[in-house]
Amino acid sequence: MASPIGIFDSGYGGLTVFRSIAAQLPGYDYLYLGDNGRAPYGNRSFKTIHQYTWECVQWMFKQGCPLVVLACNTASAKALRTIQQQDLPNGYADKRVLGVIRPTAEVVGNYTKTKQIGVLGTTGTVQSGSYLLEIEHFFPELKVEQQACPLWVPLIENGEYDKPGADYFVQLYLDQLMQQSPNIDTILLACTHYPLLMDKIKAHVPAHVQVLAQGDIVAASLADYLARHMEIEQTLTKTGDRSFYTTIDDTDTFDHHASAFFKDIVKSRFVDVRECL
Rank of each mutant, 00 (worst) to 15 (best):
residue 173 Y to V: 02
residue 249 D to Y: 14
residue 122 T to K: 14
residue 172 L to D: 09
residue 105 A to W: 15
residue 1 M to A: 02
residue 269 R to Q: 04
residue 158 N to M: 09
residue 90 N to P: 00
residue 262 F to P: 01
residue 70 L to C: 10
residue 116 Q to L: 07
residue 151 L to S: 11
residue 18 F to T: 02
residue 159 G to D: 03
residue 36 N to P: 09
residue 244 F to K: 00
residue 2 A to C: 02
residue 212 L to N: 08
residue 190 A to F: 06
residue 46 F to H: 01
residue 181 S to A: 14
residue 14 G to W: 01
residue 181 S to E: 09
residue 213 A to Y: 00
residue 133 L to G: 12
residue 229 H to R: 13
residue 59 W to V: 09
residue 262 F to Q: 05
residue 198 M to I: 01
residue 153 V to Q: 12
residue 215 G to K: 05
residue 153 V to I: 14
residue 217 I to C: 05
residue 118 G to Q: 05
residue 194 Y to I: 10
residue 136 E to K: 12
residue 222 L to T: 04
residue 3 S to C: 05
residue 61 F to A: 02
residue 219 A to F: 06
residue 242 R to T: 01
residue 80 L to P: 15
residue 165 G to K: 14
residue 173 Y to A: 06
residue 257 H to Y: 11
residue 43 N to L: 04
residue 164 P to Y: 04
residue 54 W to I: 05
residue 126 V to T: 14
residue 41 Y to H: 09
residue 65 C to R: 00
residue 262 F to Y: 09
residue 265 I to V: 14
residue 218 V to F: 13
residue 55 E to T: 02
residue 171 Q to G: 01
residue 52 Y to S: 09
residue 271 V to Y: 00
residue 63 Q to C: 02
residue 181 S to T: 11
residue 71 A to G: 06
residue 162 D to T: 05
residue 122 T to V: 08
residue 64 G to S: 03
residue 25 L to S: 05
residue 223 A to N: 05
residue 39 A to M: 09
residue 70 L to W: 08
residue 142 L to Q: 13
residue 193 H to A: 05
residue 214 Q to S: 14
residue 152 W to N: 08
residue 231 E to P: 08
